[in-house]
Design a protein around this nucleic acid. Structure first.
Length: 948
RNA sequence: GCGCUUGUGGUGGAAUUGGUAGACACGCUAGACUUAGGAUCUAGUGCUUUACAGCGUGUAGGUUCGAGUCCUAUCAGGCGUACCA
């Protein structure tokens, strides 16, 4: 009887569902282990062979942990809000929910075929009201919180209000957008609206003014990659920079904790480094500069306080509020012209081409260290969003300042001994400081940095600045607050209404606020977001319910927020919801949180390094502050699976004909390469009949062959529909079975590595499974195992395997464990072993990799339950010891290799004999020699095996 | 520019962490069985050479009895990020 994978897989997939094999409950008697995959966005294209890679790896790990006796949580769900469904809705009028559910069903069908051990009872979908209830709830909690820098955690906003009522802003150390100062009396004198505005400066979720890419025609904010050359990618409409009032999350408040947390988690160094760069902590100094002939001053931020004596000009960001103040009447026209130019450039353009542009404002600033008057310029190379939006320029030691100074003919003063700044600036923070102050200058302050190293000079300047109240030491972060509003339909609605322009939270017990129905998914004609099309989208404050818009009276009925939340809202805390997915009283119960704690192993792509993985760490830290999450870090260990790229095939059409020429002969003609569906190509050889049938226009195609075959060209590209290189897992499962697919995806190479999909090697894995089957059953399908005691050789082979596979799974090195299975099987077959006890252990070891086959074999061995509940075998060192022993004998008597063999006097005798006549090899009698390397007069390296 | 990362046969990739380089698999070659093979089995397969032997882990040096592995320089590819002062 042959290995009938189709029947076996169908049988076990059914049985797993019937018996609830993968259903998990909290069990205080068992240690927990939480395995999680980044949940997918269910796109219309379905799964391709690249998607399951990470799922298979984590599935193997989860099954392995279960065999080791852990209570394993391995859930799955869908990140269901997303742009493609909405765009499809705009084009077709089809409700995004309908397409999303269709896609989810398709995904589920495909996932089920691969045999994962997901507990589907815990499935979550971000677009379900019982799920986004808790997204809305978390948002409200953020709204009602501020961040206390002193205790380094979020606190209820009431506490801050109380502080204002008692002391105003005095003694306040909190995260804030702008540094405000007011007294308790001033606070009390504020109107309700003013107080509301003031509190926005502190709330963790707040309404703030931010610069965005605004497309008036599309009526929406666009992300940077949706804008090219100042026009929208979709439609080609002009895009402008616009200040907009939007919901934001004060992620920056958590910058230091996000940075510190990285040292406590087991992630790859490259992802941690990416996050460190993204957070961008920089220690520096803020220094105040007086504006000449004015009572006004402004503050700059610098990390190079040692260069105070080399400042030759100042630069403001064009968006800076100071621009108006410093612009003189004579320069006004020039400055306005420049500001208009900058406004026409998108942020993207400013990022891509770094033109040296700028304009002189007409004013000067006084350097507090030299007393010199430095001209104040305005230039787009200074960013409004970082530091104070103003810099001191030291062209000698900063390449950007250098380029600017050269372009506008401003002076350059070198400050480091031996630095040659005639061609380029000297940016390195190394060397001995000079010219600080310059010898010819009249001393203006009593600070001298000459002779110090750069490091020492920075420290000395900081000290001086603090002592003389010229500024302060400051830590800046590059991490910006997250913009949390989208002008879209298909997202979580905000549980917020506006009472005379003042935002109000809908009471917590009225959540969730469900997404309303609309007839059109586009912005309204008046330019409001799509939710503006909803007719039933008003809040009745008295009756606490959603009512018709027509009832809005601004007394008891008010309009509801029209923005929706962005994609990352729903994906930021989903791992917590899996712990207790059906709870309608809370995001999760305390019991569930205490039992499951956090994710032990998280598997997903590295493309989320600066998005999801920052946001969810932030979100979790906030929930940790509330006492909802019990661990500060959500994901203890992170594995980034590589991308599986596509391997495209090409045919070559001779120009202006319908004749195709084989790869080897194409250089003799003028040809156009055309992508051809990889599913009608095998080993780069085209199936000509299938090709003719593929497209009507190829019906009459003619071919120029080589050796009677048409050979296609190939290239490695992203797997995508348009390149016809998508390989569908369903097809592989149909042809080879899920177990072969699982095994092959793991065998392909390290999980973390990106690699092209190549179906060619899959036969080897399929063959291996057939051989495993043949080990158990004879040709008639009868179990062919014997009940003898295993021999030592059999045990050695088995225990070698146990050791190898256990270590490999722990290290996520699945390709080598698959190889180990193959080696073991080869060994057993050369021993002609059909030992029942050995075979039984082999089934358990393979069960995480090929669960369907192993269940079938486990049953055939006479076990009633699932192989999932077997016990992972332990290896015994005794069986491994007799493997070949290596010996190193160095001429000088030093042996650095552990000398397990031989020992004592015997050792000396061997050395003597070897030196007397190294070539004879007589001294190796009694052992079989694997290899002898003799370097005359230097060393002898011997590898021996004990003779049988 | 900066940060991270990877370079090993025709191909995907191994190498117990400094100790037989190329495990395992694909592909290829030869043979067996078969009406047939996109089935199965056996043997071979880093390169040069008839052989002896020599050469081989991107390149060039270094440390060591011994280097794919450690150090220095350099080249090439991949990923991320960018006027962050």
């Amino acid at each position: 009887m042959e290995y009938n994978f189709r029947e076996i897989e169908k049988k076990w997939q059914q049985r797993w569902v019937e018996q609830g094999t993968y259903h998990v409950t909290e069990d205080a008697g068992k240690k927990k282990f939480y395995v999680l995959n980044m949940f997918p966005y269910p796109s219309g294209a379905g799964l391709h062979v690249g998607h399951p890679l990470g799922y298979i790896a984590s599935d193997i790990y989860a099954r392995y942990k279960r065999l080791q006796g852990f209570n394993v949580l391995n859930p799955m769900g869908y990140d269901a809000y997303g742009l493609p469904a909405e765009q499809y809705a705009i084009q077709t009028g089809q409700h995004p929910e309908v397409t999303t559910v269709e896609n989810i069903n398709r995904y589920r069908e495909q996932l089920d075929k691969i045999g994962f051990c997901f507990d589907w009872d815990r499935e979550v979908r971000t677009c379900n009201p019982n799920y986004y209830h808790w997204t809305q709830w978390a948002f409200q909690r953020m709204y009602n919180s501020f961040y206390c820098n002193r205790c380094q955690m979020a606190q209820p906003i009431e506490q801050l209000i109380k502080h204002f009522e008692e002391k105003g802003t005095e003694g306040l150390d909190v995260a804030q957008s702008d540094e405000l100062t007011f007294t308790a009396e001033e606070w009390k004198a504020m109107s309700e609206k003013q107080q509301s505005e003031t509190l926005m400066n502190y709330r963790i979720a707040f309404l703030g003014e931010t610069m965005v890419n605004w497309c008036p025609k599309l009526g929406t904010v666009l992300a940077n990659d949706e804008v090219v050359d100042g026009v929208s990618v979709r439609g080609g409409y002009p895009v402008e920079q616009k200040r907009m009032r939007q919901w934001c999350l004060r992620v920056s408040a958590y910058a230091q904790r996000l940075l510190d947390g990285l040292d406590t988690i087991d992630w790859s160094e490259s992802i941690k480094e990416t996050q460190r760069n993204w957070i961008g902590r920089s220690e520096g100094t803020e220094v105040e500069f007086q504006i000449a002939d004015s009572d006004k001053s402004f503050t700059i931020f610098t990390t190079r306080a040692d260069t105070m004596f080399g400042v030759t000009f100042m630069v403001l960001a064009p968006e800076s509020e100071l621009v108006e103040t410093v612009t003189t009447a004579e320069q006004k026209a020039e400055v306005d012209k420049y500001l208009a130019y900058v406004k026409g450039r998108t942020e993207r353009e400013r990022q891509i081409d770094h033109k040296v542009t700028g304009v002189f404002s007409g004013s000067y600033a006084i350097n507090p260290f030299t007393g010199e008057k430095n001209p104040i310029w305005i230039s787009e190379y200074v960013l409004a969003g970082y530091g104070t939006g103003a810099i001191m320029a030291v062209p000698a030691h900063d390449s950007r300042d250098y380029a600017f100074a050269r372009h506008f003919g401003l002076p350059i003063i070198p400050l480091i001994e031996g630095a040659d700044v005639s061609e380029e600036s000297y940016d390195a923070k190394e060397g001995i400081v000079t010219n600080s102050p310059r010898k010819d200058a009249t001393p203006y302050c009593d600070l001298s940095l000459n002779g110090l190293t750069v490091k020492e000079a920075i420290a000395a300047t900081k000290k001086y600045v603090e002592a003389h109240k010229l500024g302060r030491v400051k830590v800046n972060y590059r991490l910006r607050d997250a913009i949390f509003s989208r002008q879209r339909y298909w997202g979580e609605p905000f549980p917020v209404y506006y009472k005379n322009g003042i935002p109000q939270m809908i009471p917590e017990d009225c959540l969730p606020i469900e997404l309303p129905e609309v007839d059109k998914f586009l912005p309204t004609e008046t330019g409001e977001p799509p939710l503006g099309n909803a007719t039933r989208w008003a809040w009745d404050e008295t009756n606490k319910q959603i009512v018709d818009n027509s009832l809005i009276d601004q007394k008891t009925v008010f309009p509801i927020e029209l923005y929706t939340m962005p994609g990352f809202a729903g994906s930021s805390a989903y791992y917590l919801r899996y712990m207790d997915p059906h709870n309608d009283k809370a995001l999760l119960s305390t019991e569930a949180a205490n039992y499951w704690q956090n994710v032990d192993l998280y598997v997903g792509g590295s493309e989320h390094a600066t998005g999801h993985l920052i946001y969810s760490r932030f979100w979790n830290k906030f929930l940790f502050d509330l006492g909802v999450s019990v661990k500060e870090e959500p994901f203890q260990k992170l594995i980034n699976q590589g991308m599986i790229q596509g391997r495209s095939n090409f045919v070559y059409r001779i120009k202006d004909t319908n004749t195709f020429v084989s790869y080897g002969l194409k250089d003799q003609y003028d040809v156009t390469p055309i992508h051809v569906d990889v599913n009608i190509v095998a080993n780069d050889q085209l199936d000509i009949e299938a090709f003719k049938a593929w497209r009507p226009e190829y019906n009459t195609a003619e071919f120029i062959l080589e050796d009677g075959k048409y050979i296609c060209g190939w290239a490695i590209e992203k797997m995508s529909k348009s390149m016809f290189n998508v390989v569908n897992p369903d097809m592989i499962v149909e042809r080879f079975g899920a177990d072969t697919l699982r095994l092959y995806e793991m065998f392909l190479g390290p999980v973390e590595q990106s690699k092209p999909w190549d179906t060619n090697g899959i036969d080897g894995c399929h063959r291996f499974l057939k051989k495993v089957w043949a080990l158990f059953f004879d040709k008639d399908g009868k179990l062919a195992l014997n009940d003898a005691e295993p021999t030592r050789d059999e045990l050695r082979s088995l225990h070698k395997l146990i050791k190898k596979v256990s270590e490999d799974i722990e290290n996520f090195s699945f390709n080598t464990s698959v190889a180990a299975f193959m080696i073991c099987l080869n060994e057993l077959s050369s021993l002609k072993s059909r030992n029942r006890k050995v075979a039984e252990q082999l089934v358990i070891l393979m069960a995480p990799f090929t669960p369907h086959l192993c269940e079938e074999l486990w049953e055939a061995l006479g076990h009633a339950g699932s192989v999932c509940d077997a016990e992972w075998p332990q290896f015994c060192e005794d069986y491994l010891k007799e493997d070949s022993m290596k010996m190193m004998v160095a001429f000088n008597g030093k042996a650095r290799f552990p000398m397990e063999f031989p020992v004592g006097t015997e050792q000396q005798a061997i050395i003597d004999a070897a030196l007397a006549d190294p070539q004879s090899k007589k001294w190796t009698e009694g052992f079989s020699v694997v290899k002898v390397i003799v370097v005359p007069g230097k060393m002898i390296n011997v590898v021996l095996k004990p003779a049988k």
